[in-house]
Design a protein around this nucleic acid. Structure first.
Lengths: 174, 174
DNA sequence: ACAATTTTGTTATGATATAACAAGTAAAAC
DNA sequence: GTTTTACTTGTTATATCATAACAAAATTGT
């Protein structure tokens, strides 16, 4: 196993965990975003920046219209193109991912690393964990190449039961 | 590698290939569908059967409203619920897959085998190949379990350039 | 035939996303 | 420092994907 790492993006509530202060995550993500945009001559404008923050503040993947509502509350323009433009920008910059099976958007924890989003999605609590698994990535590239296919992007979304919800179920039936 | 197999679901046109008669595919798929439904006491009604056929006849994943239009041409009811009900049934029976990143539906080549759909999607021609890769499946289960996650379903959609389109590009630039 | 179940018809609406063009704003060129 | 250019945002309208709710019809079991 060359490299493997994972990151719990979401949490049950807004309180701080003993092992995970989500506010730090947001701060780091925003700093990374600033840096990346600066490096690439991209403009992280007010709406774009605030959209990214709001996506990070959410504990689960955020729908476009949910995000739009939050932005509208803060006085931003409340027509759909506003939010979709921001989302397009952030997706293009690799700062967020789209979870295709949920039509929702999630802050990317490894924006600086150039990667694909691999997700574990809990059917019960709808929390999403992003993970990065080089072995699988390599295997997929090889598998695709074997069929003459040149891989560009990967959508890997796994659903099931997360550890917490599994524990809760066992407790309930006991 | 324990098991690996793939199947080219789509083709450029409706003519027969030297190595692939798509009509045979459709026939086989429909027979399998009949058998499976009979075994499980499920009713493969007219709309459902015709929907499945139409999905198979399409050379690419078919959108719900595209399917609806085809059904309407043939005198079936042309309101959305008709097609979504048929799709729900076929999805539930494992006879088709939904390609999440395209919001489109594709005949399942291994309906009898109980599996997840892994797809290679060409950005150029939009053809889709389904493949089945036990090594990756096993690795994903293990990886998820390692994080206490109980895997139930997998959405694996890989995009890029298929062999044909790659060849075409090389030819064009030469 | 009757009741129970499932499937389909029908109307309406919700949810997700983009087209097209005008107006504003920041960056670059002069 | 104004003009030109490119980019970003505002605004209206509409396309696309999907489901809720309830009535009618068909199928199945008794």
């Amino acid at each position: 196993m060359k490299h493997e790492d994972s990151h719990q993006h979401s949490q049950q509530d807004s309180h701080q965990h003993s092992h995970h202060n989500h506010n730090d995550c947001i701060d780091t993500a925003l700093e990374t975003a600033e840096t990346l945009c600066a490096e690439q001559g991209q403009r992280l404008t007010k709406v774009r920046r605030r959209a990214l923050e709001l996506i990070w503040e959410s504990h689960r993947p955020l729908g476009a219209y949910q995000l739009l509502a939050k932005l509208a509350e803060e006085g931003f323009n409340s027509a759909p193109p506003t939010v979709y433009r921001a989302l397009d920008f952030l997706l293009g910059a690799g700062l967020i991912h789209k979870v295709e099976s949920m039509n929702a958007y999630l802050g990317c924890a490894h924006a600086d690393k150039a990667h694909k989003g691999y997700f574990l999605i809990c059917d019960e609590c709808h929390n999403v964990m992003e993970f990065d698994y080089q072995d699988i990535h390599a295997a997929l590239i090889e598998k695709a190449a074997h069929q003459g296919f040149e891989l560009r992007a990967e959508t890997i979304e796994l659903t099931g039961l997360c550890a917490k919800c599994k524990a809760k179920k066992v407790g309930a039936s006991a």
